[in-house]
Amino acid sequence: MLEIKHLNKTYKAGRPALKDINVSIGKGQFVVILGPSGAGKTTLLRSINQLITSDSGEIDFEDQNLRVLNKQQLRQKRQRIGMIFQNYNLVERLTVIENVLHGRLGQKNLWQGMFGVFSQTEKQEALRLLQEVDLQGFELKNCSDLSGGQKQRVGIARALMQHPQIILCDEPVASLDPASSVMVLDLLKKLTVEKGITCIVNLHQVDLALDYADQIIGIKAGAVQINEPKSQVDKAMLQALYDKES
């Protein structure tokens, strides 16, 4: 469902951040990307939805190479790929439900988008999604009044509002306490199982990765070092991934 082939990226000044990445990801998989900091996890994730333009290679999603799409086509495709962020990236001044509805902005025409005009069914769906992420009753709160865990769940609801095939998550729990982290990851796991949405998650906690992942991708210095189903990953491989020497 998502195929990354020979992907390369070098930032303007520096060593290559991604070196010939080849990864294939199936529908409804919970994929965890592991690796030491600076390995290129963020770069890989953001290259998928073209927030970062990569240098060469292919990113095939729904029979199209995302790298060669024009602006209009890319915006269309982006609607199918949700993303949640370490810092939630919500519009804090707006209400929870407005932020969830933002997931629909890609489908709106210019005027509806600019003035935030949403249909009754969309609003109902937003309410339903808020229930799903256990935030009923919070619709009209300002996002700035929420805790970190609650904000991240709003972020998930916003991504779901896009009806995505894939959700990309860059360190979604790095700013959260352990209890909230588990809640957020449980939620993401449920999405893969119940809705068949693929989740690609950058994590730096190995234990959490082993708890949730179906597939583990290990990256080191911009190159894929591990690419296996979780059952095939053992301690020695992980140790080698984080080992500074090799």
């Binding site: 209400t95 439900i97 407005e98 509805l101 935030g116 949403f118 009754q120 609003k123 109902q124 937003a126 309410l127 619709e139 009209l140 300002n142």
Partner: peptide, 23 residues
């Protein structure tokens, strides 16, 4: 803030409840 929500709804059909999204 929330009084607006129900004012219109009671007079119209309960199904078509207007959902408030702004504050």
């Amino acid at each position: 803030d929330q009084t607006n929500v129900s004012l219109t709804t009671e007079t119209t059909k309960p199904k078509q409840q207007k959902i408030k999204i702004h504050r």
